[in-house]
Write a protein that binds this DNA or RNA. Structure first.
Lengths: 335, 335
DNA sequence: GTGAAAGCGCTAACAT
DNA sequence: ATGTTAGCGCTTTCAC
């Protein structure tokens, strides 16, 4: 890796424009309180020299970095299985970009990485952190809180018992699940099953709660634990058909599992939605539109969640605390 | 966003350890040329104070940042459609982490963002850039080269006419395609079709070349342009069946399109592989293992590509220039 | 082997 | 409104 070529400094611009460094600095940072002709001269000098501020020097004195960290724990688990995370990242990126912030991505693979991330955040390299804490027992969130960096979580952290002053952005998983199940019930279905997500994630737990809100605790054999993957959906669906062959509706905790369930139903010759109605969660377009039949599902605006997280962190959203986003039912052919 | 708490400086550590700042600095940076007892004392002081070096101050003098940018152009296009990019990112992250480098993610959505990225890179905020240039006519690569930042490209850039001194990491798309087609031919298939990827990407072009290496220019009606998406695969497959109802083998330029093709074939009652053999490209596990039947494909080690890109950029891989990775045929049930 | 001192490029008081 | 000046926290000659 070669050295970067020497770049012009404030000093150089000041000299060229025939003003002081302070004036150049003012112009570069918005130009308030500098008279027009000077602003113009400085601007030209900046242009001609191709001057770009040295962020390190600036940070040294301002103690701001215009950078925030996005921490993603254990990518293998879920992150790379579906576009969920990518969409959120995109929302985050857009919002950060709009506010001239950089995105430092911190992927962690295991325990060793936790310490590393903790050190980095505590090191004051970034102005804040956006954290995706996937699992209930993840030690990372604690580490991060101790690092004393402003943080917004993606999804309700498992240990956030309401009282804690954690800020997070989440979908209304419970409400969405209720809508899904209610829809199935309104369709006249009476034996409604639920394929849960990985229950060490709050989203899965909340969706299960929503299911129970409508269906009560009756028929516990109609609830099968899945893992948010298509394979898990298949397994769960098989189990379901075994336990309760006359099941007439399935609410899967995400689209991926619903697609797996659909596959098994077709394999077993059950017609969807005639014999069994199926509804998913997420509205992952590449999935919902490709299934056969197209999947009815609960949509959450994932990109918006990311955008909101960033906005919360940057303080752009006012003094808002945690936000729970509404979900919407998207009817397609499967239910 | 609250202010970060004031952190101990070198000065504080020096005082506590009863040495000079210079000595502390030496210890912190490896401790060469400092006698053991002092090293020990300094280490303890660092520990007790919880000292973490201020990266901004360090960068200001060293002109290094221990950070590299990952530039991804136009995420919507491909990045979020399949886990390809996520896997590469993971490889990159692992390698960077191992060398104490941070990953600054730069997502671009359109022309405006190009200027922004160019400015950022030219601004000397990072020590290098890893760039994914998806399209042949993308102006971004040019901008980046002009920025004078060491760069490694993911995938062969379209304008890299061999002669140029661009460094990239790519799979042997052409060779892999040849293997795929050869496999189909060895199966005794005679009417082998090809669903290409988006032909404004070199990977798609190279795979098409590979197809032609084996099949020649005969039967141009057996080549249909796709776009790397499942939907594109479906459309192409329909077109193919129309043009040439007796097609007995299909090489799709990626697994996603192959899955779409599979869907259409099933829909039309063609048995796979009996009537039509299908082979994909990538070996995207979530796709290849979920299709019916499981998909035979050409595997490329995506995570390794990412790791290699990082290694090349960091100079860890010796004086290596561009690298083209071998692919392997993975036989499953579809061909 | 260790310390003293000179900046790195910038911003923010404070003068003017 | 503009200039002067004093650091921000660190590395790195250069003396000792």
């Amino acid at each position: 890796m070669t050295e970067t070529a020497p770049r012009p400094t404030l000093e150089a611009v000041a000299e060229r424009a025939g003003v002081s460094r302070a004036t150049v600095s003012r112009v570069v940072n918005g130009g308030d309180g500098v008279r027009e002709p000077l602003v113009e001269r400085v601007r030209r000098a900046v242009e001609e020299l191709g001057y770009v501020p040295n962020q390190a020097a600036r940070s040294l004195v301002t103690r701001r970095h215009d950078a925030i960290a996005v921490v993603v724990a254990e990518p293998e688990t879920r992150v790379f299985a579906d576009p969920f995370f990518a969409l959120q990242l995109r929302g985050i990126s857009k919002e950060l970009t709009a506010h001239d912030n950089q995105l430092v991505l911190l992927l962690t693979e295991g325990r060793d990485d936790h310490a590393r991330v903790g050190r980095y955040l505590a090191g004051g390299h970034v102005d804040g952190a956006l954290v995706f804490s996937l699992h209930l027992d993840d030690p990372l969130p604690g580490l991060i809180q101790r690092a004393g960096v402003p943080t917004v979580f993606g999804g309700r952290p498992g240990w956030s018992d309401g009282s804690r002053d954690v800020v997070f952005v989440d979908s209304d998983n419970r409400g969405g699940a209720r809508d899904a199940v209610r829809h199935l019930v309104n369709l006249g279905r009476t034996r409604v099953a639920h394929i849960t997500g990985a229950l060490d994630q709050t989203s899965a737990v909340d969706r299960l709660e929503g299911f129970r809100d409508i269906m009560g605790d009756a028929g516990p054999q109609l609830v099968v634990e899945g893992d948010f993957t298509p394979g898990g959906g298949e397994r769960a669906m098989r189990e379901l058909l075994e336990r309760c062959p006359d099941v007439d509706a399935v609410f899967a905790a995400n689209d991926l599992m619903a697609s797996g369930a659909l596959r098994v139903l077709r394999e077993r010759g059950r017609r969807v939605p005639d014999d069994v109605a199926v509804i998913g969660f997420d509205d992952m377009l590449p999935v919902t539109e490709q299934t056969d039949p197209p999947l009815t599902t609960i949509r959450q605006d994932i990109e918006e969640m990311g955008r909101l997280m960033a906005r919360l962190l940057l303080g752009t959203a006012g003094a808002a605390s945690s936000v729970v986003l509404r979900t919407t039912l998207v009817r397609r052919a499967s239910a």
